[in-house]
């Protein structure tokens, strides 16, 4: 950066954040289709990392396979593009070996809920300090548009399921809750700033934080453009009582956005007990960060 108005670079840095979202992006050009929701997730994640001032060398993003799993390549942090459905095992091992890192697993609905479905259940109940972002577009996009676990049973635009799957949809939030996840949120790729708030809370949450992101597939699910009009602030709020959260999640239409559930339970850390002193909620932690860094 060049000095302006005769002031030194150091002085400029003092008033402008030293790390910007751009600093977390790599030089690799995304191959996602223009208009893909995943661009919104990438933008939200880089903004989150910049806002939390996490040094890039202290962050690792791990993924499986699929369009969304290309995410690590587009970030200038540590990355691991693993095999299909195995983002969570890789992230689990990494966090166990390098607990000082901020470890984020990312992928799509097929990768996370079908091929990696079993890992999802056990990551939820293990409650290791990880953030798991699932970019849910209700389709396998990379393989040209097949039904995924979250696809509607009557979606019949795939050659493999010309009459629909006939199967009930996987319910990510409800299943995460039943499996013991301690942080469950739902965001929308078309609202990158709202998603940034959820991702910041998820990363700050001590334990396993699951964020389902509704991320429209422009090419194979063009009707998901309607999500812009259909998503709504979730009426659930941070329901800390699991039974009440279960009831409310079941009643929700799947398009409600916000923090759906958060609970303080021991964090798995290779046999180390949870930090009992950390009793702040996500909202309280974000408020504390704002108080410390902003204004």
């Amino acid at each position: 950066m060049t000095a302006a108005h005769g002031r030194s670079t150091e002085q400029l840095k003092a008033s402008i954040p030293s790390l910007r979202a751009k600093d977390y992006k790599s030089d690799v050009k995304p191959v996602w289709c223009p208009g893909c929701g995943h661009f919104g997730v990438l933008a939200a994640l880089t903004k989150t990392l910049a806002y939390l001032e996490l040094p890039p060398e202290q962050v690792a993003v791990v993924s499986g396979i699929g369009c969304s799993s290309r995410l690590p390549a587009y970030l200038a942090v540590h990355g691991f593009h693993g095999v299909h459905g195995r983002a969570l095992p890789l992230a689990t091992g990494l966090k166990a070996a390098r607990p000082e890192l901020t470890v984020i697993a990312a992928g799509g609905d097929g990768d996370g809920f079908s091929i990696g479905g079993n890992h999802f259940l056990h990551a939820c109940r293990r409650n290791q300090d990880l953030t798991y972002i699932v970019m849910d577009n209700e389709v396998y996009g990379m393989t040209k548009g097949q039904a995924s676990p979250t696809t509607q049973p009557d979606w019949c635009r795939s050659k493999l399921t010309p009459h629909g799957t006939g199967m009930r949809r996987f319910q990510p939030a409800a299943i995460a809750l039943a499996a013991g996840a301690s942080f469950i949120a739902r965001g929308f790729a078309g609202d990158p700033n709202g998603l940034t708030r959820l991702l910041a809370a998820a990363i700050e949450h001590p334990g396993f934080a699951f964020v389902q992101v509704l991320s429209p597939c422009r090419t194979f699910r063009p009707e998901q453009q309607e999500w812009k009009q259909l998503v709504h602030a979730c009426e659930l709020g941070p329901a800390h009582d699991a039974a009440r959260a279960a009831e409310l999640i079941q009643r929700d239409d799947g398009l409600g956005l916000g923090l759906l559930f958060e609970q303080k339970i021991p964090v798995y850390a290779a046999g180390v007990a949870a930090d009992a002193a950390d009793t702040l909620t996500a909202a309280e932690r974000l408020a504390a960060i704002e108080a410390e860094h902003c204004r």
Binding site: R7, A14, S15, K47, Y51, N193, H293, C294
Partner: peptide
């Protein structure tokens, strides 16, 4: 450069 900017969450 001549001012201290507020740091605003995204």
């Amino acid at each position: 450069a001549d001012m201290t900017l507020p740091r605003i969450p995204p």
